[in-house]
Amino acid sequence: MPKVPGLIKGLGVTFGTLVRTAKEGANTVQYPHEKEAPPIRARGVIALREDNCTACMLCARSCPDWCIYIEGHKQLAPPRRAGGKPRQVNHLDRFDIDYALCMYCGICVEVCPFDALFWSPEYEYSEPRIADLLHDKDKLGEWMETVPEAPELEAGAEKKK
């Protein structure tokens, strides 16, 4: 059998891809009309459960580019048991994340000791102005609805305590 010239062989690959695309459909999707679902673990946006936050500042301090702004104050809450002393609790006044600075590293979510921060795969929150990417705690709280359950782990993995 004579040797097939490389050019013809290359055209064969192109033709094969053409046939396959015609049969199975294209690999691309038309974005605004069709959307691909991101994986469960995708780091899209950080959501905040405000009730859990105690304004302890751990996330703000561990952020590599310091894009979390927290303000809080102490206030008295009614006692847990009747007749007890009023408790002192930390109240969160301001929790802003500047998504223009955020590097999406996830360190804040990891260090949070009170389960107040979560990753959501939501990604459609671009803004025409860069200053509008500073989102406050109400906006971060809205994203709580989109937070998925953590995925099951592969066989052989050890359960986290």
Binding site: I40, R41, P151, E152, L153, E154, A155, A157, E158
Partner: peptide, 10 residues
């Protein structure tokens, strides 16, 4: 590592 692999990844 931060976490283990999710199910179905392998």
């Amino acid at each position: 590592l931060k976490d283990d692999l999710p199910k179905g990844w392998i």
